[in-house]
């Protein structure tokens, strides 16, 4: 009996890994292609476009691309992007969780109205609001600084707030009630009960917030008026000109490099998504 079970389990494991890897190949293909292409010498980029393996690998595109424009190298773009992304991410995750608790747990007048307003901010395309927003920020003298990009994140963002609301609503109410009976006020309940229980949601939010602010280009395009303030995504888009010469090798190389921090953050944070949360101890 035991033998049969074990071999069955082994078979399942093999089946599982095979399936996951086969689908996985389709998933990782773009990264491999991008990485491979970034190593191809100029002659191979178009002639051997569909191959992911360079015949004569070269690092020249990395060196060329890193130089950036004039005397402004990619190290400056990295620094700018890192400042924006880290601050935005931290600010967004904590402010959104805080706000979400209010929407998820407390009853107050006009709650539904404000919640609808919040969702509406997602439904009007940002592109169309660009000009009024630009005029507004220019009246505040925020142009040519990171402020228009960073400051709004301190006020939460609908996507994250709504997401965390849904997670908080999944947390049994008995937990906060127990805390309140123990004499916690609502702020203490939020910090000591809800926030820890929402770690998976907050981690997820952090992964997205980082990735989105890392790749965001419309706001930097409009508000950063000096190459020294440019972000990576902006710099990458300045490489190409449809009617002129474009160094595609450099674009591939720098695109590939720009993915690494996003990946690193993902790998660093996702390990917090591994353990299921037991409410057992808290209930006690």
């Amino acid at each position: 009996m035991v033998e049969v079970n074990r071999s069955k389990r082994t078979r399942n494991t093999i089946l599982y890994h095979t399936l996951v890897i086969i689908i996985g190949i389709f998933m990782i293909y773009p990264i491999l292609w991008l990485g491979g292409s970034s190593l191809k010498p100029d002659g191979e980029i178009w002639t051997r476009m569909s191959s992911i393996f360079p015949l004569k690998p070269t690092l020249e595109h990395y060196l060329d691309g890193w130089k950036g424009f004039g005397n402004i190298s990619f190290s400056i773009f990295y620094k700018n992007t890192a400042i924006i992304s880290v601050v935005t991410t931290l600010a967004l995750v904590f402010s959104s969780a805080f706000i979400a608790y209010g929407f998820a747990r407390l009853h107050f007048p006009l709650k539904k109205f404000w919640f609808a307003c919040m969702l509406a901010t997602l439904m009007l395309p940002l592109q169309i609001q660009l000009i009024p927003q630009y005029i507004m920020f220019s009246k505040l003298h925020w142009i040519n600084s990171f402020k228009p990009i960073i400051v709004p994140s301190f006020f939460g963002r609908a996507f994250y707030i709504f997401m965390i609301v849904q997670f908080i609503r999944g947390v049994p109410r008995s937990l906060d009630e127990a805390a309140e009976i123990d004499g916690c006020n609502r702020f203490k309940t939020f910090f000591s009960i809800i926030m820890p229980l929402c770690t998976p949601a907050m981690i997820t939010a952090a992964i997205f917030a980082f990735y989105w602010s890392w790749g965001e280009f419309l706001m930097p395009l409009i508000y950063l008026n000096k190459p020294k303030l440019y972000t990576i995504s902006l710099a990458l888009r300045s490489f190409s000109d449809p009617s002129g010469q474009t160094d595609w090798g450099a674009i591939y190389a720098m695109s590939f490099l720009s993915l690494l921090p996003v990946f690193a953050i993902f790998i660093a944070l996702q390990k917090y998504l591994i353990e299921g949360i037991s409410t057992e101890g808290l209930k006690g």
């Binding site: 424009f69 660009l130 000009i131 630009y134 005029i135 220019s138 142009i143 280009f217 419309l218 395009l221 409009i222 008026n225 000096k226 190459p227 902006l234 888009r237 300045s238 490489f239 190409s240 000109d241 449809p242 009617s243």
Partner: peptide, 25 residues
């Protein structure tokens, strides 16, 4: 002298916005 640059499509989005705000270079 300060300067800025962009790719073709982005350039027009940017300058149009700047013009609307009265802040062209």
């Amino acid at each position: 002298a300060t300067y800025e640059f962009a790719g073709w499509t982005d350039y027009w989005t940017k300058t149009t916005t700047m013009a609307a705000g009265g802040m062209l270079p």
